[in-house]
């Protein structure tokens, strides 16, 4: 299994993630990767409405958000979260990766997109990018591009 240098916050604490997906398996899979990246699970949710409540409760560093979900879809949840928290860092994670979906999510405030099935090395690079763009993670001791080891 690939090993990854820990992605940490500027204060050297683990990055805290909120994982949102209506599939328990998808959440578990993402949480397993977060563990590989040295992160911490702040919370999880199975739909957009619960995601908003969990975001307000846990104030995570990064949200991994599915798009197609019951009750409230991921893109609407992104819009509502970003309206209240302009600095929220949300990465969309979906099996439906067509341009309209990606553009809609980015326009509502998502920072990036990754298609399922998620490859750990792809998610790792995206998280590095998303965290490096953020002042709280600037200077975090993360690996350089391509530095993760197999």
């Amino acid at each position: 299994m690939a090993q990854f240098a820990a992605l940490l916050r500027k204060d050297n604490q683990p990055v805290r993630y909120l994982v949102v997906d209506d599939s328990v398996f998808a959440r578990k899979n993402l949480m397993k990767m977060i563990e590989m990246f040295g992160g911490e699970i702040a919370g999880e949710a199975g739909d957009g409405l619960t995601a908003i409540a969990e975001f307000n409760r846990t104030k995570p560093d990064v949200v991994l958000m599915d798009i197609t979900m019951p009750q409230m879809e991921g893109i609407e949840a992104v819009e509502r979260i970003v309206r209240q928290h302009a600095d929220a860092r949300i990465v969309m994670v979906s099996s439906v990766g067509y341009q309209e979906n990606i553009l809609a999510a980015l326009q509502k405030g998502a920072k990036h997109f990754v298609q399922k099935p998620v490859k750990p090395e792809v998610l790792y690079e995206i998280l590095r990018y998303v965290l490096s763009d953020d002042p709280t993670a600037a200077g975090a001791p993360v690996a350089l591009a391509g530095e993760h080891r197999s």
Partner: peptide, 24 residues
Amino acid sequence: ETVCELANMVIGNSVTLLNDQGFR
């Protein structure tokens, strides 16, 4: 859960490819 997750991934990836062909 397994059947739904597999369906999501296979069908999601399929419609992404169809979308690349111009279907909306």
